[in-house]
Amino acid sequence: EVTIKANLIFANGSTQTAEFKGTFEKATSEAYAYADTLKKDNGEYTVDVADKGYTLNIKFAG
Rank of each mutant, 00 (worst) to 15 (best):
E25V: 13
T28K: 09
F20W: 05
T15N: 14
V2Q: 13
K21E: 09
T15A: 06
Q16E: 06
L8S: 02
A61D: 08
G13Q: 15
T46V: 10
D48P: 01
E1T: 15
A18M: 15
D36L: 07
A27H: 00
G53F: 03
L56T: 01
V2R: 08
E1R: 05
K21H: 06
E19Q: 11
L8N: 02
E1L: 12
L56M: 07
L56W: 06
Y54L: 07
N57M: 15
K5P: 01
A33L: 10
N12M: 06
L38N: 09
A50M: 08
A31S: 04
K59F: 08
K21F: 11
N7L: 06
E1M: 15
A35E: 00
Y54A: 05
G22A: 05
K39C: 03
T15Q: 09
V2G: 06
D41F: 08
K52G: 13
L38M: 15
T3S: 13
T23I: 12
Y54E: 04
G62R: 07
A33W: 13
E30G: 07
Y45P: 02
Y32D: 01
A6N: 01
F20C: 02
N42A: 08
A50N: 10
Y45F: 09
E19L: 12
E19V: 12
Q16S: 09
A50F: 10
G22C: 02
Q16P: 02
L38C: 04
G13V: 07
Y54F: 15
K40P: 07
K52L: 11
I58A: 01
N57E: 09
Y45T: 02
N12A: 06
F24V: 14
D48I: 13
T28H: 06
E44C: 05
K21C: 04
A11S: 10
E1A: 11
D41V: 15
F20V: 02
Y34Q: 03
E44K: 12
N7Y: 10
T23F: 03
Q16W: 14
I4G: 00
I58V: 08
A11C: 03
Y45H: 02
N12F: 09
I4F: 02
V47H: 04
K59A: 08
D41C: 03
K39N: 05
T17H: 07
L56H: 03
G53N: 05
N42V: 05
S14I: 10
T55N: 07
T55I: 15
A31Y: 01
F20D: 00
G43D: 03
F24A: 07
A6W: 02
N7D: 05
G22I: 00
T55D: 03
G22W: 01
T15E: 07
G62F: 11
K39A: 09
T15G: 07
Y45D: 00
D36C: 03
I9V: 15
N57H: 13
N7M: 11
I9L: 10
N42I: 05
F20A: 01
L56E: 00
T3H: 08
T3I: 10
E1P: 11
T28L: 15
E19W: 10
A27R: 00
T15I: 08
A50T: 06
V49S: 15
T3Y: 05
S29N: 09
A31K: 00
L56S: 00
A11I: 06
T46C: 04
E19K: 14
A18N: 13
K26Q: 06
G22N: 04
L38D: 01
Y54Q: 11
A27N: 01
T3Q: 05
G22L: 01
D36A: 12
E1Q: 14
D41I: 08
V2S: 05
Q16H: 11
K21G: 06
G53V: 02
G22K: 01
L56G: 00
S14F: 11
K5Y: 13
D36M: 08
T37A: 12
K52D: 07
K5V: 11
G22M: 02
K26S: 05
F10M: 13
K5E: 07
G43V: 02
A27V: 06
F10G: 02
N42P: 01
K26M: 11
F24K: 13
T37N: 14
K5W: 10
T55E: 11
K21P: 05
D48E: 09
K52P: 04
N57C: 04
Y32M: 06
L56I: 07
K26G: 08
F20M: 02
T15M: 09
A6V: 14
K21N: 11
N12G: 10
N42E: 10
I58C: 03
Y32R: 11
L8M: 09
T37I: 08
F24D: 02
T37W: 11
T3M: 10
A6I: 10
F20H: 02
N12V: 06
E30S: 14
K21Y: 10
A61C: 04
A31I: 14
Y34V: 09
S29Y: 15
A11H: 11
K39V: 08
V2E: 11
A11P: 09
S29I: 15
N12P: 05
E44S: 10
L8A: 05
L56Y: 10
A6M: 12
L38T: 02
T17I: 11
E30R: 13
I4K: 00
Y34D: 01
K59H: 11
E25P: 12
T3R: 12
A61G: 05
G22R: 01
A35N: 01
G22V: 00
V49D: 06
K40G: 08
D36K: 07
T46Y: 06
D51P: 02
E25T: 10
G53R: 02
F60E: 01
T37F: 13
E25F: 04
T23P: 07
E25R: 04
K21S: 11
T37Y: 14
S29C: 04
F24M: 08
A18F: 14
G13T: 08
V49H: 14
A27F: 00
Y32I: 11
G53P: 06
A31W: 02
K52T: 13
Y45Q: 01
A11N: 09
I58G: 00
G62D: 13
N42D: 09
T15R: 08
K39L: 11
A61I: 12
L8D: 00
N12T: 08
T46E: 09
Q16A: 12
A35R: 00
S14Y: 15
A61P: 15
A27D: 01
F10P: 01
V47Q: 02
T23N: 07
E30W: 09
E30P: 00
T28F: 12
N57W: 08
A33H: 14
A27C: 03
T55Y: 04
V47W: 11
D36S: 10
Y34T: 05
A33N: 13
T23C: 03
F10E: 02
Y32V: 07
A6L: 11
I9W: 12
N57A: 09
K52Y: 13
T15C: 03
K21A: 06
D48K: 11
A35Y: 02
G53M: 04
F60D: 00
T17Y: 07
E30H: 07
V47R: 02
S29H: 13
E19A: 12
F20S: 01
A33E: 13
Q16F: 10
E19Y: 08
A11Y: 11
F10V: 04
Y32K: 15
A11M: 07
T37V: 13
V49Q: 14
N57P: 00
N42Y: 10
G22F: 02
F24W: 14
G62W: 05
K40I: 08
K59V: 14
K21D: 06
N7K: 11
Y45I: 03
A35Q: 00
A18R: 12
E30I: 07
E30T: 13
I58D: 00
G43E: 06
T55S: 13
T17C: 04
D51R: 04
T3N: 06
N12S: 04
E30Y: 03
V49E: 07
F60N: 00
G62S: 06
N42W: 13
L56Q: 01
A11R: 10
N57Q: 12
A33M: 14
F24E: 07
E30A: 14
G43F: 03
K40M: 12
Y32L: 09
T55C: 03
K52A: 13
A61S: 05
N7R: 09
T46A: 12
A31H: 02
F60I: 01
K5A: 11
S29F: 10
N12D: 07
L8W: 10
A31R: 00
K40D: 12
F60R: 00
E44Q: 09
Y32F: 13
T55H: 04
A18D: 09
A6D: 01
G22D: 04
E30N: 14
T3G: 05
Y32T: 09
T15V: 15
K21I: 07
A35D: 00
A27K: 01
G53I: 02
Y34R: 06
T37K: 14
T46Q: 06
D51I: 02
Y54W: 15
T23E: 04
N12R: 05
E44A: 06
V47D: 02
T37E: 12
V2N: 11
A27W: 01
N7P: 01
